[in-house]
Amino acid sequence: MSDVDLRKLRYFVAVAEELHFGRAAECLHIAQPVLSRQIRALEHELGAQLFARTKRSTELTAAGRQLLDDARPLLSSAEALRRRVAQTARGPKIFTIGFMPGITLTPAVRAFEALRPDLTVEMVRTTSFDQVQVLYDGRADVSVVRLPIDQRGLSIRPLFEEPRLAMLPADHRLAGKASIDITDLAGEHLLQHPDQVPEWRDLALELRSGGRRPVPDFNSVEEKLEHVASGRGISILPLSVAAYYARSDVSAVPVTSLAPNKVSLAWLASRRTRALQDFAALVGTVDWTMTR
């Protein structure tokens, strides 16, 4: 069997995500017949049917689902390779740090710049959706992440922990209390994926109105808090994030029964550059209490 063409894999992923050849072709800016031929060629190369197509729908087969799981990290690795080579060709070495909202990198960055004046340090703000992805696609060398994350293929170094608070509308029945228990929130609509607050799922609380309302995909903390302030639900945020985005129409209340949020440094286990090793060693000497 010949080597798999990365271009065909990109085409496959586009169709797999859209589950519609026409829309995928529009996203890829190619003609639909061309896309269909490329997918058939890929199926021939792999010796497997990837899509089950009818006049009304397009669905992934079991082989297609497996390929999608494997193709995404492969394409990310290829993109990371391209970024790193292009970056090196441009000249001065750049070291990029990803970081989540509420985390202040200044002490770590200043210490690292003093240790490695030969490097240009850049920073990229991440979200819960891409805090790990930035490592796989090469946008960042390391990422300061908030757990839980999928740690497969990563090296992790714990940095600090901080309490988590319930973000409630200012006129909420629990607003202004010194602290609450998670059971006090039973029946509330959670404006984030339950996996980000495992305690709620573990306690089998009805936090999404019996599951009838979908969890929205917010691109920022600001969007989430706008919905909280409007009375559309509640959210759970780490202390530093709640403090950074404090607003008068949202009440931040400590939840005593929630485990603290764990903040760690993450990087690809397969990467062992000197700069990465230096930064990983340095972060253990930073006083992170000064950044919150």
Rank of each mutant, 00 (worst) to 15 (best):
F129V: 03
L159E: 03
P148V: 06
L237Q: 13
A246F: 06
P33D: 04
G102E: 02
F12Y: 14
L74T: 15
H227G: 01
F21S: 08
E17D: 10
L258R: 09
E45R: 12
T120N: 12
R72D: 02
R146I: 02
M290G: 04
V263G: 04
G284L: 05
A246E: 14
A280F: 06
S257P: 01
D69C: 05
F95Q: 05
G211Q: 05
G138E: 06
D249E: 14
G187I: 00
A259L: 02
R274V: 01
L258N: 11
A62Q: 12
E45W: 05
S209Y: 09
F160D: 03
T126I: 02
V142D: 04
V134M: 05
H189F: 10
P163E: 14
R56I: 00
A175S: 13
T58W: 13
V283I: 08
L50V: 02
A178H: 07
T104R: 13
Q133S: 13
Q66G: 05
V145M: 08
E223S: 09
E122G: 11
E18C: 06
A259H: 14
Y244G: 06
P107L: 10
V283L: 09
V253F: 05
L205N: 04
L105F: 06
R157W: 10
M290A: 15
V142P: 00
R90Y: 05
N261R: 13
